[in-house]
Amino acid sequence: MRILIISSQSDFRQQMQAACLRYTKTLVSLRTAESVGQGLELAHQFEAQVVYIDLTRNIEAGILAIQQLSGVPNRMVVVSIDKLTTEFVTRTIRAGAREVLVQPVQDEDVHQILDKFAAINSNTVDVQPARNGKVVICFSSKGGVGKTTMACNLAVMLQQRFGGNRVALIDANTQAPNIAPMLDLRPTRWLRDAVMEYRRLDNEMLNELMTVHEASGLHVLAHSTDNPLGLDFSEDQLSKILLVSKGSYDWTVVDTFPLLSTLNLSMMDLSDQILLVTEPVVPSLRSARYNLEMLQKAGYGKDRIKVILNRFSNFRGNVSPELVAETLNWPVSHVVPYDVHSTIAANSGQALVNMFPDSNVTSAVSRMVDGVTGVPTPPPPPEGVVEKALRQFRNWLDL
């Protein structure tokens, strides 16, 4: 019996693991996930038959996850919470949950649920779950560090690597959206349209709301710059959009508003990686350190949060990547150098990785994609002296 436990609380995961391992009526195979996003991915890979999901911290994202998890035949979804209410039971059962556990859980209750699953599914055959894509969140609680630039170029390079309709970029910066002008897009459908229809949003509708970036083929769900402060977004609306995107695209890159809010945390719960963008300037590093402390308390670890040091220049008096890592008490996963080409590309409405494929920033983004995907880029053929001179001359002309 394949069992998956989803909870941001390590105590709950350990308690459930121990209870399941003490179940002796059949062979048990266990997996655990620290977030809803990881859980959805692992449920697909592991082909989980019984899923225990803890909704103590984020009920709204959990409800949407239950709907997706329970869509697989012969799977039992069990929800758990510390305080039980009639409204909670009604909502979770309607979403697709089969059982409810009140914390702290008892071995007897866990074993009764496993007995029930075994009895119901004694003569059934496993069915392969639907595909589940990955979500990468670009975040910083300080504006102006290059977060949106990073999100755009990361998404474009992912599209270059994978091709087809496999990569999406979502502008979830709800108060200062900039992806559309940065990529010179003129959308006719926006994030607000997806929010208005979020209850019936599906793969087909999301695809219709996307704007195609002609230079790369990337699918972009842009946010309108017209009166963005007048729009009201909730955690369940954006969570639903991300869940649908995970089912539609192999990779979804999300740009966020620079604030450690419940809205951003709900999206982080569905993410596979969080790229925390900072720069070697004291105010930015202070903000990054605070972010890391808060996110760590919320249950996010070094396996999910990757620090991106942007706009680094190696001059006397600047903060080195080693000192940044020491200051943050967190490893620096990628260093992106300062390059004037970034400004030129942004002012031109083009992705830097398209406009300047030979720049140092493009090389850094390529290494970042290697790290995000876990698939290294094949090394290019050796560059001759003439080719190198011509490339450097073209870059000089662009300046």
Rank of each mutant, 00 (worst) to 15 (best):
A364L: 00
R367A: 11
V353A: 04
Y338A: 13
M368S: 00
F356V: 04
Y338D: 11
A345E: 08
A364Y: 00
I344M: 08
A364F: 02
N347C: 06
Q350P: 05
F356W: 04
I344V: 15
V365T: 04
T362S: 10
N354V: 12
T343M: 14
V353L: 05
A364W: 00
R367H: 11
I344W: 02
L352M: 03
N360H: 15
A364R: 02
T362R: 08
G349T: 05
H341G: 10
N360C: 12
D358R: 15
A346Y: 05
P357Y: 02
H341I: 05
V340C: 11
N354H: 10
N354R: 12
M355A: 09
N354Q: 14
V361P: 00
V340W: 12
S363C: 12
N354F: 06
S366I: 07
A346F: 04
N354Y: 07
M355E: 08
R367D: 08
V365A: 05
G349L: 02
S342E: 08
M368N: 02
D358M: 13
S363P: 02
M355V: 06
S359H: 05
I344D: 03
S363N: 14
T343W: 09
S348E: 10
D358A: 15
V365E: 04
A351G: 06
Q350G: 06
S363W: 12
T362Q: 03
M368K: 03
T362W: 01
S359T: 07
P357C: 12
F356N: 07
P357N: 08
V353E: 00
A345Q: 05
T362L: 08
M355L: 14
A345N: 08
H341T: 12
H341W: 07
M368W: 00
D339E: 03
Q350R: 13
Q350V: 06
A345T: 06
N360S: 14
Q350M: 13
G349M: 06
M355T: 07
S359K: 09
A351R: 01
S366V: 09
S348Q: 11
H341P: 04
M355R: 07
V365G: 04
V353F: 05
G349F: 03
Q350E: 11
T362G: 00
S363I: 13
V340A: 14
A364E: 01
S348F: 09
A351S: 09
V365Q: 01
T343I: 15
V361E: 01
N347V: 09
A345M: 11
A364I: 02
S348N: 14
